[in-house]
Structure formats: C-alpha cells, structure tokens
C-alpha cells in the first residue's frame, strides 16, 4: 500500500479494547496509508491489545474519561461512542475517522459526523485519496453488482469500512504506544441499559464477519449442520447460515442483508437457495461456491463453481480430501 502523501491524522475506533480484531488491524493498515494513526477507546486497552497497536504503528491511544452516567455498559452505546469520537477529533485535529462496519459502529460514526459537520461513508470497501487530497471511498452496492466511488467534500471524513477490505500489515517497525486520557462530555440523550450480556463466540473458529473463508448452511441441511461444520473445520472457515436456518433454531447467525454481510475470499453455500436477501450479504465474496440438489437453484447464477448434489454426501467427501491434502 502506498505511503501517505499528506500529513493527515487518522483516528481508528477500538471498541471494545479487550482485543484488536482483524477488522481493526485492517483499519490500522488503511489508516497508515492515509497518514499518522492514533486509536480511540472507551476503556483501558489490554496488554495484548497494546502490543498489537504498537506493532501496527499506533503511538497514541486516546482513552475516553466519561462521566459516571455513561460509564459501565452504557459506554458502548452509539451516542457515547459518537461523543468520544467527536471529542477525539477536536482534541487531535484529526482529518479522518475509521470505524468497523458493525451496526453499532455505523451509528456512532454517523452521529460523530453529525456533531462535527463531517461527511460520512458507511460500508466502504476501500479508502484512498484523490488528486486534490480529498478522501475517496469505494463501495460495493446493490448486492455487490455495482461499484461506486464516494468523495468526501468536508474537511473531516468519517468512514466505516467493511471487513476483508485489505490484508492487515504491521508497520515496518513497532512503535512505543502511550495511552492518554481525555475528558468526554455526552450531550445526546442516552438510553438506559437494563441488561447487557456480551456474546460468547466460538473461539475455535474465525468470526463470521472477518473470516477469509465462510461455509454457510441453509434449510437444505434439514437441521444437521454436521457436514457444514466438518467442511468448515477442514478449511479453517467460519460457519454461517441462511435466515431460515436461524429461524428454525439450527444456528445462531445468518448471512444476508439484515444479518451479517460477508465478503470473504471464499464463500460456500450448502442447501441455500440464494434468495436476493441472502445474496445481498455475500455476493461481494471473491469466489462463490454452492452445493445444492436442485439444478435450478438461483444461487448457481452467482457461483464460480457448484455441485448439483446432496450436501450430506458432497461436503464430507470434500472435507476428507482437503484434510488429506493439508496433511501432505
């Protein structure tokens, strides 16, 4: 990636600060191509997180000091995160803010931009600059069927970036990372958090939104995700599902326009028909593969490779060969 030509300051949102996910490592990588990188958190980063920030060239972490009412679980709410981002921009005179494309971070980014009078781009697939030094974002829209370019016309640009936009790349040399507190006042109205239970993710598999390979199962699994899991494990992939499979209670997270949007190197859909809602969440994947016993399945229209067959036969056979190949 090209080195920054301008002396920009780029803030990257790190929330939570307990770990630095690959989506945030991507943001740090993009940020370094635009200017000097600083991170913004709502809590003290863990030692592991600090080590990664240091490897990725972050010299300063700005940690919000919040009033009691907005500490605790409320600190992850969009108005609090937004006020923190806006205050950090004012503090550092930053030019660009980058956040992941989670639903929560999108809201925070938009609210921060509102407060700053800045332009906002949601779901960018790339972030660069044009000849005039304006920030330019590439987007995939209409279920990955169109590419658009958005140019930010304001001095400050706020962007949320989709996972799998770039390959995370540490800085040439690690830097010393310091954490500095700064006061944040939240003006917006903040809801009351009655209860918050952090989601526990399967730590043996990559997370769905960030994985380089996704294997998803649909109604065609008949409720048995065994073959889907087996192929996913052979490939080191994340497991996903269609909404129907989730509604049946067979799995917990679904791929699609209203679920998780994924853009991995490889997506494999098994027993999934390929409804427009589902396609909208995976069509930007680099390679699409499907296994379906209906030769007319709509998902074949967007596939690179597909097998017409029973997934309970095809997936385990493929998994066995892949395991054998990897053991060589």
């Amino acid at each position: 990636m090209a080195e920054a030509t301008r002396n920009r300051t780029v803030l990257v949102l790190l929330d939570p600060a307990t770990e630095v996910r690959s989506s945030v490592l991507e943001l740090l990588t993009i940020a370094r191509s635009l200017g000097r990188v600083e991170a913004v958190t709502l809590e003290a980063p863990t030692v592991e997180a600090l080590a990664q920030l240091s490897a990725f060239g972050v010299e300063t972490v700005h940690q919000a000091e919040l009033a009691p009412a907005t500490q605790g679980d409320a600190r992850h709410l969009a108005p609090v995160v937004a006020a923190t981002l806006a205050a950090a921009v004012r503090l550092t005179d930053a030019d660009v803010v980058l956040a992941p494309s989670s639903f929560a971070a999108k809201e925070a980014a938009a609210l921060a931009a509102r407060e700053l009078g800045a332009g906002v781009v949601i779901d960018a697939a790339s972030v660069t600059e044009d000849g005039d030094g304006r920030v330019v974002a590439g987007k995939r829209v209409f279920a990955g069927s169109w590419d658009t370019t958005s140019t930010v016309r304001t001095e400050v640009a706020v962007l949320t970036v989709r996972a799998n936009a770039v390959v995370p790349q540490p800085a040439d040399a690690a830097v010393a990372t310091e954490v500095e507190g700064f006061a944040v006042a939240v003006d917006g109205v903040v809801p009351t958090v009655v209860e918050r239970t952090p989601t526990v993710r399967d730590s043996d598999r990559p997370t769905l939104e960030e994985a380089a390979v996704v294997v998803a199962g649909g109604r065609g699994t008949g409720g048995d995700f065994g073959p889907v899991n087996e192929l996913a494990d052979a490939l080191g992939a994340a497991v996903g599902a269609s909404r129907d499979a989730v509604f049946e209670g067979w799995f917990d997270r679904y791929v699609g326009q209203t679920g998780v949007t994924v853009a991995p190197r490889l997506y494999i859909g098994a027993g999934i028909s390929g409804a427009p809602h589902h396609r909208g969440g995976m069509q930007a994947s680099q390679v699409v593969v499907a296994v379906n016993n209906d030769p007319e399945a709509p998902i074949f229209e967007i596939c690179d490779f597909a097998v017409v067959g029973d997934l309970t036969e095809v997936l385990p056979q493929a998994a066995a060969i892949i395991r054998a190949h990897k053991d060589q």
Partner: peptide, 23 residues
C-alpha cells in the same frame, strides 16, 4: 448540501459462466 458525493458508479463485470458439476 451533501457532504459526500457519488463521483463514479459502474456495474461489476459479469461473472464467467458457473462451472457446474453433477454429483
């Protein structure tokens, strides 16, 4: 009044025909 502007829009190239294998 827009703070961002769509400056380019182009359809993605069509995918090559799917390689379909009958099991």
């Amino acid at each position: 009044g827009a703070r961002t502007e769509t400056t380019q829009a182009s359809p993605r190239p069509e995918k090559p025909e799917v390689e379909l294998v009958q099991d």
